[in-house]
Structures are given as C-alpha cells and as structure tokens.
Design a protein around this nucleic acid. Structure first.
Lengths: 356, 356
DNA sequence: CTGAAAGCGCTTACAG
DNA sequence: CTGAAAGCGCTTACAG
C-alpha cells in the first residue's frame, strides 16, 4: 500500500523496470555511482533514453541520506533579515562565499540566527556538509560545547586565541590589531594626542571589537599616548551618547569608532549639534565599503578585504569537506586605511575654544 | 556489515534500544510524529532522558526523504555572487524573504543561477519545498516548460500576462507601469517635453523593463508628447554610449533610466564630459534605495517597496506549501517617486546653447 | 559484466 | 496503548 503524501516523482526503479535493467545499472549510468558496476554502451544508451522519456529527476534527499553528503554549505550570521540596514560589509561577505560555493557546485543555505539555548549539535542535522560561522561566539561555555562539534566549520572573524591553538576550527579574519595601528598612526600624524575609542553595545565583546581595542591600546602606548578609562566608551548603535560626551570631553580631538556604522552615526550625531567634521573633530571607522563614500563627510575607515576573506573561508571549508583532511588552516588578511574626508589636522586646544 | 563513509550519529533506533521501547515511541515523544502512537508520561520521560544522555540529534535528511518536506525554500536570482556591485535592490529583497522565512522556521537556500539548458524539473530534486524566482524568464519556450513544473513557485517581478492568466504561478510585482507615469508626470511638470527612455542591454526584455517602457509610452502619449524611435535606446550597463548620444541628441532635456544603476552610470558619464546635472539634463532612475542617496547628484528615482514585496512573496509561497492550496495569488504593489537632486526645470532650448 | 539485496534514519499505517 | 514492519529513493558491497 502506498503512502499518501508522496510526490509523484519518477524513480530510479521505474526507469530500471522500463528499461529492463537493474536499479544499480541505472544509478551507474545516470549518476556515475558504484565503482563495481559496469554497463555496456548499448544498455547505457537505452537507459538514458528511457530516463529522458520519463522525465526522470533524481531525488537528492534520498542521495543525501544514503551518502551523508548534501553539497550544501550553511552560513550563519546574526541579523540576517537586516543586512540592508547594516554595514555593506555583510553584502560583500555573501558575495565572496556565494561565488566560491557556486563555482564548485555547492549550494548556500542561510541559517537563522543561532539559538544559544539549543544544542550546538542540532546544526549537524544532516542538511549541510559544513558551516561558515561569522562571529563565532567567544565565551568559554560556548567554546567548551564547540570542542565536541562534529561538523567541518570555518570561523570568519577572529576567535579567541585558545580556539585557534586547539586547532579545532579553521578561522579567517583580518588583522584587526594592525588595523588599529593604521588608524592611530594616521591620527597621530595629523597631530591628534587625545583619541576616543568607541565600542558598540552588545558588540563590545566580539573578537573583532576586542582585537581592535587591543590594537588601539598598543598603538597609543607606542606613540606615548596615555590611555585611561575616559578614552574608551561603549555607546548604543545610534551614538545617542555622543552630544553628552562632547560637552564633557577632556581634550579629545578624534574618535576611532569600532565599525563603519557607528562611525557614520557619530557623524550624524555631530551634524545634529552643528559640529564641523573634520575641523572640530576627526572620526575614523572600521570596514571601509561603498557605504563610507555615502556619509557626510565621507568616512575615513580601515578597509578589510572581506570579499577575499569570505571567499577564502569558503574555499578551505570545501577543501576540508572534500579532502576530509583533519588539517586546519588559519589565515589573517592584512588591512589598509582608506583616508577620506572625516579626518584632518587636529585643532589646537585653544582654537577649539575659539570655535565655540 | 556497516557502510564505511557513515557519520557516527546517534539514531532513533539506538535511543529506542537503550530506553527499551519501540522506535515509533521515540519518534512520537521526541518529534511528535505518528498520530496513532500514544506514549505514557513515564515512558516519555525515560525516552527524553536517554535521548539527552546520548546526545541524540535527528537526521533531517532521513525525515526529508520520508515526508518529502524540507522546510527550506529556494531563492533564484541572477548574478548572486555580485550583489555588492549591483543595485541595493537585491539586498532588500534578501532581507524581506529571509525575515518571513525565518520567522516561520524555514531555511533559505540560495540557488546558483538557473541553467537554461538543464531541465527545469531538476529544481524539483527534493531539496526545497518551493521556489521564489526573481525575474522569471518570459520567453514562450520557457513558459511552455514551466507549465509542467511541479514545485510551488512565486515569481517576483511581473511575468507576461498570459502566465498570470494561466493561474499557473503566483506573482508579486510593483506597478511598473504606474511608476513610469510618476516619472513622466514629474518631468512634464518641470517643463520637459523631450525625454529619452534608456534600457540596459540584456535586460531589455525582462518583464520589468517592458512594463516600464509601456508606461513611458502611455504617459507620454497622455501628455501629448510624441515618442519616436530616437526616444528609446538600449545601452550597456556602464552607459558608455551616453557621450555620443549627447552630442547627437535631438532636443532631449531628460533621461528616464530603467533602473537605479543605469541612472547612476549616466550621472557618472555626464560628469566625465563635464555636463551639469540637473541644470543641463535631468535624470531619473527606478528602484529608489539608499544607493540613490550616494550618487552625485542624488538620483531622483521611483521607489518600489521591495522589502514588503519580497516578504509577501515568501508569505504566499509558505501558505501554499503548508496549505497545499491550489489557489494562486497575484499582487501588484504601488510605487512612489523619491524626488532628489538629479531633476530640475527643463533648460530652454536656446539656454542649452549658451551653456556649451 | 550484471543483478538482487541490504541499508541510510526516519515516519506511519497496521496488527496485536 | 504498544511494537514490528514496510517503505521513502537512493548507493554500494556482494554474490553470481
């Protein structure tokens, strides 16, 4: 008796019956499967003819179950349904991943935001061959779980060092630390000596943010700039804290925002209180994309080669899936600084007074 | 004997053995499957305990095969690996589709560009429950094939009328025709009487382009503007034909570009030959997104609510998948015009001469 | 060279 | 209420 909710697809069996051969023979001819199976040219022709006539389409769910391979890679990043609002960064990331995957005949599945309460293992439900995980959480409890994770996975963006040392996961990131150096060098060259580092709430503990902050500290130190508590703030995404900060600042002439969007919001907030950027204040961001060309003034920002990075992440993931190699890779891409219109020579302390 | 390349996953059977119950009982308790199966509370508790201890993860490939449902929707549009280069339009489309899918616990699979030589049926290989097809081809031969297509499918962007009449496919689009009216009304109000419609090569036969062109004809006619062969051109994506056209134009004072990108490229091309937009020429585009804010000058463009459209497309697709209803919907969303800085009062013919 | 058969891990109609 | 069994559509080791 047939099960009711079945699709009316033509199966390998039907082709085999129609052609008067075994299922194995059809599988061999149509899909090239089965090393021990051999089929002569005439029979092969006949099989192909029947398959075409019946409009046979292989059921890939069945193949997946049998071979435990899906030819699909999962992509995991937060707030997927909001990429048009966020930094262009994510669009380049998608392009990089997709181009590599498609050229190697893989599909891309976007996974909904990871549920921190669900078991990590549920990602290994047989629907993807591997995972590209953007901003892999860095908390110890998560990493503990992650150690047991069975699916090939590449983390995009710097994980905490111990995960890398484990060799448990490949990771690809830009050199956030060096990026901060580029920013500070640039600002110092322009005469700035008091620089604020602005983090974003709920992003302040991401590996990226932490690495940029580290770089900020180190570079300031190198330039003999004293960095204290009042030089690092955590603001909301819309930088609403900016005006209050501006009124109580202690001699700062520049802000280094942890990403492009926060930088842009600071620009907007400054405009609202009629601050002139870059004359009165220099602003720098991170993740230099087309978006930074659209701000007023255009935002100076660190450029990370996100397309190349994400393409590379996809590449090593596929290599791992196909090679089955236990070997892990980790690559850090260098950054550059795109100097635009939001940075300028530091105003001298007394000239700030004049401008008020 | 075990097959070698098998993953080491815990199965329903193992849980059942460990708990001393039937597979059916475990399936019922853990997944809620099987209406005829009933399990008491104590046994259910025991089963859940064992499953947790063994770290059981259901194999969804197996479920897919059995139920012929994947809880995954495929998205098909061209040049996926290049969205960062293209109009922002596609990013909003992704957001709309993803937000609806995710909120209803579906996954989104991005399909590589459709191979026109492959059989259409191969999309129905059991890996997606339905399809959102952006810019469904409108050629007769394609539509012929499409008539036999077995997978639920929603077309985003206007298909040719006959496909709609068939009721064979649901479709969602904006009112391209009315969008053109908005453009022409705006330009006529500014005094323009000679308007060029610019198509893009390889896109000139898309339903969108054709509908916009229709609207252009109709609206011009309504305003008593004569439209001839010299008023419609097909240019390459970078608008390289623009300078030559400008030198040989026959009194045109405005260009209506079929989409935002071509509009932006015309702006750039005009800048290269030191034309002043909008003083010497008005330019309008279609698909008003953040991108139009970034051009110099900012591009006046028709705004289609692409996020809402794509979200709606996803919604009716899921309704169809879940309801199994044969009912098809078709919805046309209204457009609005975002007037920015690339349009102005038409220069009088002799003042054009002065400007040269 | 070829076919019959086992099995992937589930769901579900059916028999007890 | 519960379990044993068939079957989804493939792939592949094995026997002829």
């Amino acid at each position: 008796m047939r099960i009711s909710d079945r699709r009316a697809g033509v199966t390998l069996r039907q082709v085999a019956e129609e052609a008067g051969v075994s299922i194995a023979a059809v599988s061999k001819v149509l899909h090239g499967r089965g090393d021990s199976v051999r089929v002569g040219e005439e029979r092969a022709q006949a099989i192909r003819k029947v398959a075409e006539r019946l409009n046979y389409v292989p059921n890939l769910s069945a193949r997946q179950l049998r071979t435990n391979r899906t030819n699909t890679v999962g992509l995991l990043f937060e707030n997927f349904g909001e990429i048009s609002a966020g930094p262009q960064y994510y669009v380049h990331l998608l392009d990089g991943v997709a181009s590599e995957l498609f050229s190697r005949h893989y599909r891309l599945t976007i996974l909904p935001e990871f549920d921190h309460h669900a078991p990590l293992q549920s990602l290994a439900d047989g629907r993807v061959d591997g995972l590209i995980w953007c901003k892999l959480p860095g908390t110890p409890s998560f990493l503990d779980q992650f150690r047991e994770f069975s699916l090939p996975c590449v983390a995009l963006n710097a994980p905490p060092p111990q995960a890398a040392a484990d060799g448990k996961v490949a990771f690809v990131s830009c050199d956030n630390n060096a990026g901060s150096w580029l920013v500070i060098n640039h600002l110092v060259e322009l005469g700035h000596r008091r620089i604020l580092f602005a983090l974003e709430r709920r992003e302040e503990d991401t590996p990226d943010a932490r690495a940029r902050l580290q770089g900020f500290f180190a570079a300031c130190h190198q330039h003999g700039i004293w960095v204290g508590e009042e030089d690092v703030v955590t603001w909301s995404t819309d930088a609403q804290e900016f005006p209050a900060w501006w009124n109580q600042r202690t001699g700062h002439t520049a802000i280094y925002a942890w990403n492009e969007r926060l930088g842009a919001e600071i620009l907007r907030a400054a405009d609202r209180i009629e601050l002139r950027i870059p004359d009165q204040l220099s602003v720098v961001g991170f993740d230099s994309t087309q978006y930074c060309e659209t701000t007023i003034p255009r935002l100076t920002a660190v450029n990370q080669p996100i397309r190349e990075m994400s393409q590379y992440a996809a590449k090593i993931l596929l290599d791992q899936i196909e090679g089955g190699s236990a070997e892990r890779y980790s690559v850090i891409f260098p950054c550059t600084l795109d100097v635009r219109d939001s940075t300028a020579i530091a105003p001298r302390p007394h000239s700030i007074g004049e401008l008020h």
